[in-house]
Design a protein around this nucleic acid. Structure first.
Lengths: 351, 351
DNA sequence: TTGAAAGCGTTACCAG
DNA sequence: CTGGTAACGCTTTCAA
């Protein structure tokens, strides 16, 4: 646990001054320091395993090459962690590191996390949420380049760029997949009221119906909730004791957990998926959708892409890349969802 | 985006010197600074919203009150995030903050994450994994007080304290719950080979059988895997086309996803849970076990407790709390799992 | 009771 | 081409 080597140690060992060390190790040696000294410096640095002290560097340069990521509950919840994964990919590839702080949905902690990060000279901030939602943007975020991922500035005058999934198109594409398979009566288990994502997915569903010249039956749309039991009870209501002619031939779910509930209900009722009933999920949740029996056709949320896009615009503004967004330019990036066809959807049964 | 107030700004506004500001704001004002000046200083600090620059502080004090948490994939995976939540609770309550870096299972990134954290003067390090596993401890962790959560030093001479769940007792308690309900033929879907947790849970299962004076049937234990499909196929093999007398009356699963697969199979076979078949999960995965239909009886992994315990021992050694572990004292803390009884287990069917 | 100065490890500037 | 010096913001010691 002995102290790390400093630039001074390297200088001494190489028999030069600190400044020479600094110049050489930052690639500005040529034309400033004798070749011979350069070699000695580099050798000494290696022998001492010298790496500059990041703290001193930050203090000196007033920047740290660190991006702070604040999340409402991405770390502790099972969802959406890949947004952070994608963001980190991009950050690393551009020579930045990310540090994450999760506030477990406590708004008071948001502010203090951001203050902490700011105090440590982060060069930029990113706020990530579990599930699309409006955000009361913490004040500190405006003091440094910042971006929102999977959430958006809920104030009347949005200041921050945000990156979100295109839920309307997602809902539409999912519905169209089913329509193309010949389904004409598609029930929608639509998630819970109060979530911003749910109504958008419903809107996409309506769009697809309209585009196909079909009219939607209001009673086919249920704001069921987001969990397995909601899917189960929703499906039972739709299917149990209902004659085949009256049954929807497909159930589209607003997430994969609902689809599990639907599958449970179908199995209990002796209905086979997809022969008797097609089931669609949404999210493509890892270790759920792909391992379901049958494997779930679903609309994948572009989590990594959201993270990548958000980090890219953030770093572009930090590094002043030309074309980087200013207050004027677009404040919204929408990333398309991706249809993943597996085994839970098939041709509508003939009746 | 104008610069933050510094101690010098406060001093100027209060008409005193920088040092006075420092003394007063660190509670060492009495006996050193006139009461009157103290008030002026505090007022000025408030007006300027002064808070000390953490970077300068770290540089000066050679410590940061930051704990670095490195994870193999806790952030991006859906599992075990609550370990970090628990750790953060304890850290905050003791005036530390945590920053998380996820290396997405890339050992090369472990080392660099730790180097980055060390360069930023973290006062301590914690490594967290998804699922119990041996860890090839990255070298840098030995340069600063460190602790392992949900993993353990795989080297012959373990150096670091680790905190892990008591899987053997967990397996035993789960089995005993079923035994107490009258089950005598309990099948075990035991997870995958190669995972350290699986054999421990099996050992607990054997212990419970032994304690009850029962002998285990080797063919009742299947290393099935960890996912829904494995549970489904495992259950089908156990149940499909097997006469009631030959069927196990309960299936114990090494995690909740396997239990989903089992429930799916049971429903398809017209078996009712728990009347015909009791099903146990393991993990008490959020939004899965509690919302299953029927709600899953399961063995809850003490994730938050693991995080809390790990952070507590870490901070104790950092702050030199008496009784804090030294190289001599215990290197292992085992946290008990917690039986959560819901609706998927019931009395063994009479036959 | 107060203020000046040193030092934490860097880098950038400017004489030599 | 080189080495000393200032500055980043803070705390602590020492002298006034």
């Amino acid at each position: 646990m002995n102290r790390k080597a400093t630039a001074l140690d390297v200088a001494k060992r190489a028999g030069v001054s600190r400044s020479a060390v600094s110049l050489v190790l930052n690639g500005r040696g040529d034309g400033n320091v004798a070749k011979e000294s350069q070699d000695r410096i580099r050798l000494a640095a290696q022998e001492l395993k010298y790496s500059p002290n990041a703290i001193a560097l930050s203090l000196r340069n007033q920047r740290s090459r660190v991006i702070g990521i604040v999340s409402d509950e991405v770390v502790v919840s099972p969802f959406d962690g890949n947004i952070i994964g994608g963001a980190d990919d991009v950050a690393r590839s551009r020579g930045f590191v990310t540090v994450v702080m999760d506030t477990e949905r406590d708004a008071a902690r948001d502010a203090s996390a951001i203050e902490t990060l700011l105090d440590r000279q982060v060069d930029g901030l990113m706020y990530v949420t579990v599930g699309l939602k409006p955000l009361d943007v913490p004040h500190g975020m405006l003091r440094v380049p910042s971006v929102l991922a999977n959430c958006y500035d809920s104030s009347p005058k949005p200041q921050l760029h945000h990156v979100i999934p295109d839920e309307i198109t997602g809902g539409r594409d999912a519905t169209e997949h089913l329509l193309q398979l010949g389904h004409r009566d598609i029930a929608l288990l639509a998630g819970a009221e109060g979530s911003p994502a749910a109504p958008l997915r419903v809107e996409g569903y309506r769009d697809a119906y309209a585009a196909a010249g079909l009219s939607v039956r209001a009673d086919r749309i249920t704001m069921a909730g987001w969990d397995i039991d909601a899917g189960f009870h929703g499906a039972m209501k739709l299917l149990d004791g209902v004659s085949p002619a009256e049954r929807p031939t497909a159930i589209m779910c607003a997430n994969d957990r609902l689809a599990i509930g639907v599958a449970l209900a179908a199995a209990r009722l002796g209905l086979s998926i997809p022969a008797d009933l097609s089931v669609m999920g949404y999210d493509d949740e890892a270790r759920i959708a792909d391992t379901m029996v049958p494997a779930l056709t679903t609309m994948a949320l572009p989590l990594r892409e959201i993270g990548r896009a958000a980090m890219t615009t953030l770093l572009d503004t930090i590094e002043g890349v030309s074309g980087a967004d200013t207050a004027e330019t677009n404040v919204e990036t929408m990333v398309p969802c991706r249809l993943v066809i597996r085994e839970s959807t098939g041709p509508a049964p003939t009746r």
